[in-house]
């Protein structure tokens, strides 16, 4: 059973064992508009929590995607190269960015769960 956690920068992380899928939330993709390009990290690259892991671009905006937790890139979603629209169409599913091997499970504790994130969104306008 996987657990989903959220950051204040609107990344989600879905953890399954020691591997986690990272992407941006539906709220984030709506804010950006039509995504036209995603810059993904190299395989094997390691990030500390909060480091820039990817960049997502729409026509008039660009946003950095930060690693929600520390970890090593074990897979990137190469489908985004030819079909960046997947981020808009299915941000929680086919529009994922990277798979990370989580270095420190305890870092997940600082992130929001679904309900907390929903409450957080209500505070934004």
């Amino acid at each position: 059973m996987s657990t989903v956690r959220y950051t204040k920068d609107h990344e989600y992380i879905r953890v399954d064992g020691d591997v986690a899928i990272v992407g941006i939330t539906d709220y984030a993709q709506a804010q950006l508009g039509d995504v036209v390009f995603v810059e993904l990290p190299a395989m094997g690259k390691s990030f500390k929590k909060g480091e820039q892991a990817a960049v997502v671009e729409s026509v008039k905006a660009a946003s950095e995607v930060y690693a929600p937790v520390s970890g090593e890139v074990v897979e990137v979603n190469s489908e985004l190269e030819g079909a960046p629209a997947l981020v808009n169409e299915d941000s929680a599913g086919k529009g994922w960015f990277v798979k990370l091997r989580v270095a420190d499970q305890s870092e997940l504790g600082a992130l929001m769960d679904e309900a907390a994130y929903a409450d957080y969104l209500k505070t934004l306008d």
């Binding site: 804010q31 950006l32 508009g33 039509d34 729409s58 026509v59 008039k60 905006a61 660009a62 946003s63 950095e64």
Partner: peptide, 11 residues
């Protein structure tokens, strides 16, 4: 400090 405020770009 990127410009991350999007807007519709498809008619």
């Amino acid at each position: 400090m990127l410009n991350n405020q999007g807007r519709p770009t498809q008619p």
